[in-house]
Amino acid sequence: MGGPVGDPTPVWAVVALPLVLAALTYSAAAMDSAFHSGGGFVAPLREGVRLVVQQRRRTLAPDALLARIGVISLPAAALLAATVIPLDGGSVWEPPVSVVWFNAMEVVAWGSLWLAGWGVNSAFPLIGGYRFVAQGLAYELPHMFALITAGLGAGSLDLTEVAAAQDGLWFAVWMPVAFAVYLLSAVAMTFWGPMSHPVADDAAGGVAAELSGPDRLLFFAGRLALLTVAAAAAVPLFLGGGAGPWLPGWAWSLIKTYAVLALLVWVRGGFPVLRMDRFMTAAWMVLIPATLLQALVVGIVVVN
């Protein structure tokens, strides 16, 4: 999230990135609190402070190293994914395949959840970890196809170029299936709302059941940060990036990011948690063929 294309990344952008991500993540937590629990905008802060000072609860014979890696890698992956997301024409790091990098960092969450679930040596977290591996496998393919469709429409795997290719017509308008599948699978990849089976109540909190204190704070902050990054990536991928009248590019990027984020946060309240073993069929039988057809349509349009 730095200067225009071509310039070397300024130092302030590298410093600002974690701060911007943290602010957006906190907004997500505040929106969640305002929409669903009625706790107001200070509630996440209060909960965060409570978790920071809370003493850690220990389990018998944990693999503490693996559990720690699992918990810490979740916010770390969100930050690494955020480095390639353009805010105003350019991003902090500009690899020519930033779409693939973004996806790779989302997939880190598989490892995070499995490690956190395995490491604490407790049955319910382990079940949650395995649930997420299955969920990730089922949703990675439709997610990947939705990302590739946007890349195909732009002829590039660079988020900045994908945003620039939507001159006049947003990809969300002429590839609605890919956009819908992207949002749905992004919710699944961040185990949020209806896709929160890996941390669901029926398994006593799943992966997070034994996490307490700072671990729990990092884990759930990491999840919200991943959700935030997924919302921010939807802007260059499908919503025209920073394009818009009157306001500068970064302002439009932020406004659009907030809109997508509010939608994703709001989704949590309205739908029950889906049992992944049942919903797996829908992922394989409906979403993958739908995204493939969408890619075919986009491919034909691009070739012509």
């Binding site: 690899p95 020519p96 395949v97 693939v100 990098w101 996806n103 790779a104 997939v107 880190v108 598989w110 490892g111 499995w114 591996v133 990730g136 496998l137 990675e140 795997l157």
Partner: peptide, 18 residues
């Protein structure tokens, strides 16, 4: 080798989890 590098990272995470 940007594409190969990122692809190795992406595929290896998925592969090792499986």
């Amino acid at each position: 080798l940007d594409y190969l590098g990122v692809l190795v990272i992406l595929m290896m995470i998925m592969e090792m989890l499986v």
